[in-house]
Amino acid sequence: MRRLAILMLLPLAACSSSAGEGTASTPAPPPTSPQAPAQPRDLTTNLAVPWAVAFLPSGDALVTERDSARVLRVTPQGQATPIGKVPGVAAAGEGGLMGIAVSPTFAQDRFIYLHFTASDDNRVVRFRYDNGIGPLQPIVTGIPKGDNHNGGRIAFGPDKYLYIATGETYKTHLAQDKKSLGGKILRVTPTGEPAPGNPFGSRVWTYGHRNVQGLAWDDQGRMYATEFGQNTYDEINRIEKGKNYGWPEVEGVGGKPEYTDPLLTWSTDEASPSGLAYAKGSLWAAALRGERLWQIPLTADGEAARPVPHFQDRYGRLRAAVQAPDGTLWITTSNKDGRGDPAQGDDRILTLPLP
C-alpha cells in the first residue's frame, strides 16, 4: 500500500500537552483536482466546545459539549435545544463529555451512546432517548483516563458494531499492551461485549495508537482513523483487523514489517486532526492546531491522493466533521477549549454544501 506524506517546509514542532491535540517526498497529485466546496455558513452559534455530532433518523442532530456535559438537539435549520446534562461527567483537560452515537436500530430501541470521562475512568454508556437523558447504562468501563489523550470518538460501523477510540493518556506503554483498553480502537456489541470476529478474543480491534480522534468508513466499508502524533507526524490510518499501528515504537512511517504504516502523515503544525468524515469520494478531517479542513481524495482502491486544505485560519480550531442526512458537512469549532482564541459567536456549528 502506497503511503503518503505532506512536504514540510517549516521546522517541525512538538505536539505537547499545550500544543495539541500533529515528511518525506512530495506526493503525486490526484488525476483531477477536486472541486472546491462552497463557503460554510453558521448553523448554530454560542456553544461551548461542541465535541461530537450524531444524527437521528428525523434529520435532527444530537451534539455533545465537552466541558458543560450538555447534550443539545440541533435541527437542520439551526435551532439548538438542550435535552439535558449527563450526570457523572468529570471534565478536565482534554476529558469530559466526548463521543456520541445513535443506535443503528434506533427506531426500535431508541438507544443513544456516549463516551465520557468519569471520576475514575473513561467509559461508554447508553440510555433510552425520550426527549431527555434517561438512566445511564454503562457498557464499557475501565478505559484509562488522564488530563490528555482520552480518545473519545465512537461510531457504529457498517457491520452494526460499535467502534470506540481510546488514548494512552500519556502512559505510552499501554498502546502496545493488548490487555489494556488504552491506545486502542475497540469493537463491541451494542451491549459492550467483544464483537464476534475480534482478533484477540477481547474488545480490542487494533492497537499501537497514541490518541485516536476520528473514525470514518468509505463506500466500500474500508475504515479510516485520525491520530495525534507527538513530535513530528499526525496521521490518518487505514484501520484493519488486528493490526499494530506502532506507537510508541514508531511515529509516522516506520517501514517495519511488524507495524502498519499510516496512509497519510502531516506535520503537527498543519493538522492535529480530530473529527473525520467520508463524503463525495474524499475523507474530510477537521484540524485543531492546523485550523483548517483537510480534504483527502481517495482512489478507487482506498489510497490517499494529495490532500487539499480549505478555510485555513478562518474559523479557528475545528473539532468535528460529520455528513448530515441531506449530504452537507457539519463542522464544529473548538475555540473555547482553552487552546483557542474565541471570536464573537464561538463556538459554532458550520454547515458546508459539498460539490
Rank of each mutant, 00 (worst) to 15 (best):
P248F: 06
R210I: 12
W247A: 03
A304Q: 03
N198E: 13
W284D: 00
T206P: 11
W247D: 05
G252Q: 10
R306W: 07
A304G: 06
G281D: 07
W294M: 14
K256G: 07
E240H: 01
G252W: 10
P199F: 11
P199Q: 12
G246C: 06
S202F: 12
A287H: 08
A279D: 07
L263G: 13
I239K: 03
L276A: 04
A305I: 02
L215N: 10
A300F: 02
L283E: 02
G254I: 06
L276K: 01
Y245P: 00
L283M: 05
G201R: 10
G252L: 09
A300R: 12
D261A: 09
E258S: 09
A287W: 01
V250C: 08
G229S: 08
G275A: 06
T232G: 03
W266C: 12
P199K: 09
W294F: 11
D269I: 13
P257N: 11
A216T: 09
Q295C: 04
G254W: 07
A279L: 04
L276I: 06
N211V: 11
L283Y: 03
A305T: 09
P297G: 08
G281H: 10
I296M: 07
D219S: 14
G255F: 06
A277M: 00
L263M: 15
L264W: 12
P257Y: 00
E249A: 15
W284N: 04
G252T: 14
R238H: 12
W266G: 14
A287F: 00
D234P: 05
L288I: 07
P273N: 08
Y259R: 01
L283G: 03
E270G: 15
Q213D: 11
G302P: 02
G275S: 06
A304F: 06
G290A: 09
K280Q: 15
F228C: 00
Y207H: 15
M223T: 05
G197C: 11
A300P: 01
P273A: 15
S202W: 11
W266H: 13
I236H: 00
Q295D: 03
L215S: 10
A279M: 07
L288T: 08
T232I: 12
W205T: 14
H209N: 14
A287T: 15
N237M: 04
T260G: 01
R222Q: 13
R222C: 02
P297Y: 04
R306H: 07
E235R: 01
V250P: 05
P273L: 13
V308D: 00
A286C: 00
G242C: 01
